[in-house]
């Protein structure tokens, strides 16, 4: 059970580790176009790190539907509440 508010800080740490940038502030609208170096490779790192952190497994459809940080956070929240 993780709420969206709880997910943001942990996800921020993941982003900072993945991009090695501590100034990155996560907003629901943030997407790959906004961050330099956010390519498909980094996208997979973020996904895998999130799976590891919240002990969840995204489906292929869920991954294909991700467009922004907000989408990712909502998906994590849904999956961790058993939804």
């Amino acid at each position: 059970m993780a709420t969206e508010a709880e997910i943001y800080p942990a996800l921020t740490t993941i982003f900072h580790d993945v991009f090695l940038r501590d100034d990155l502030a996560l907003t629901p609208e943030l997407n790959a176009k906004d961050v330099q170096g956010w390519d498909s490779f980094k996208q997979i790192e973020i996904i895998m790190a999130s799976e590891e952190a919240w002990k969840i497994r995204f489906t292929t459809r869920e991954l294909d539907a991700l467009r922004s940080v907000g989408d990712l956070v909502r998906t994590i929240a849904t999956k961790t509440s058993g939804g």
Binding site: F41, I44, E45, M48, E52, T59, T60, L63
Partner: peptide
Amino acid sequence: PALWHRAKQEVSHT
């Protein structure tokens, strides 16, 4: 297998 289909990575990141 999902990662294989998505990125042709045979060994998982983890």
